[in-house]
Design a binder for these strands. Structure first.
Length: 272
DNA sequence: AAAACTACCTGAGTGC
DNA sequence: TGCACTCAGGTAGTTT
C-alpha cells in the first residue's frame, strides 16, 4: 500500500486536477469494495458539484463538495490513475470520475480492501472517529505520547506505532524504518519508552515521512501516482524487506520477526 | 480494556 | 507450463 506518504502524494497530485472543478460524470463498475459503496448518495452528493477542498487524515482522503465529502481509502492495493477516457484501462477498475474539462480519474483496487464512502456535510464518519493525531499535522508532544503509552500494559512500540487509534497513518514499512532510525527495538514495550526517546521517535517519524513524500512515496508493488510515475523512497529503505541483508550501520544481518501477525525487520545490534 | 487474531481479496513469487 | 503454496503496504470486527 499506499502508506501515508503515498496517500499524501496522491492528495497533492489530485489537488491541481480537481480543486474548483466540477464532477461531470461518475461511473461505478461494482457496488462493493471493503464496504458497500453508497452509490446513490455519492451520485447525489457529487455529480455536477465543485470540489472545494481536499484533505487527509491518516490514510484517508476527503474530497469536499458543498453537501459533504467523498471519503477515499486505498486499502492495501488501491490506486488512482489518470487517463483520457471513461473507459476502464486496468483490470479491477471499480469507479471512474470525470472532472471538467477532461480529467478522468480511475479508482483501481485489485484486493478491494479500500473504500469509497460518503460523509454528509457537518458530519464525521465512524472510520475517522477515534483516529490518533496525524504525524504530519500539528507536532505531537512527546510528553503526551509517553502518557498515552503508559496505559498500554503489553503493546510493543512497533504495534503501538501501527495502531491508528494512537497515531494515524503509520504502516508496517514506516514503523520498521522509524524504529531503526531512532535505534529503538521494535520489541520494546511502548510504556517503557522515555520522553527523550519519544521525542526522537516522533521527530524521526516526521522526518522520514516528509523525505518519502519528497521522493514521491514508496513504490512497492501497487503504488503509482495518478500519472503512473513511481515513487523512489524504496531506494532509501534501510531494514524493511531486507532480511539477512547487512545492516547499513553495523553490517550484521537484518532480522525478520512476526509481531501481531505482521513482519518486522530490525537490527538486533543497533536497536535497543 | 487492551492486545492478538481473523477475515476480507487478488496477484506475485517460489519450489516442485 | 502448471499447480500448490506462501506472502503482501490495511484495518474492522472478533476473540482471548
Amino acid at each position: 500500500m499506499p502508506e501515508l506518504p503515498e496517500v499524501e502524494t496522491l492528495k497533492r497530485a489530485l489537488t491541481p486536477l480537481v480543486l474548483n472543478k466540477r464532477l461531470l460524470k461518475l461511473r461505478f463498475l461494482r457496488k462493493d469494495l471493503r464496504f458497500s459503496i453508497p452509490l446513490s448518495k455519492l451520485r447525489e452528493g457529487l455529480l455536477n458539484q465543485t470540489v472545494s477542498r481536499i484533505t487527509r487524515k491518516g490514510k484517508y482522503i476527503l474530497m469536499h463538495v458543498p453537501d459533504g465529502a467523498l471519503l477515499i481509502h486505498l486499502g492495501m492495493s488501491g490506486r488512482v490513475i489518470q487517463t483520457s477516457s471513461m473507459k476502464p484501462m486496468k483490470k479491477h477498475t471499480h469507479a471512474v470520475f470525470k472532472f471538467e474539462p477532461d480529467v478522468y480519474l480511475h479508482y483501481v483496487d485489485p484486493r478491494r480492501f479500500g473504500c469509497l464512502l460518503w460523509v454528509p456535510k457537518g458530519q464525521t464518519h465512524p472510520l475517522l472517529e477515534g483516529l490518533g493525531p496525524d504525524p504530519l499535522g500539528e507536532e505531537i508532544a512527546a510528553t503526551e505520547m509517553k502518557l498515552v503509552a503508559k496505559k498500554c500494559s503489553k503493546a510493543s512500540i512497533k504495534s503501538f506505532l501501527m495502531n491508528a487509534k494512537r497515531i494515524s497513518g503509520v504502516g508496517n514499512i514506516y514503523a520498521c524504518e522509524v524504529l531503526f532510525a531512532a535505534r529503538v527495538s521494535p520489541k520494546k514495550p511502548a510504556r517503557k519508552i522515555n520522553s527523550v526517546q519519544w521525542g526522537l521517535i516522533l521527530s524521526t517519524l516526521r522526518d522520514i515521512l516528509q523525505k518519502s513524500i519528497v521522493a514521491g512515496g514508496t513504490t512497492l508493488r501497487d503504488f503509482y501516482n495518478t500519472d503512473g510515475s513511481q515513487g523512489y523512497y524504496k531506494l532509501n529503505l534501510t531494514v524493511y524487506d531486507r532480511e539477512d541483508k547487512p545492516c547499513p550501520v553495523c553490517t550484521k544481518p537484518i532480522k525478520r520477526i512476526v509481531q501481531s501477525a505482521r513482519s518486522t525487520f530490525y537490527c538486533k545490534i543497533c536497536q535497543k
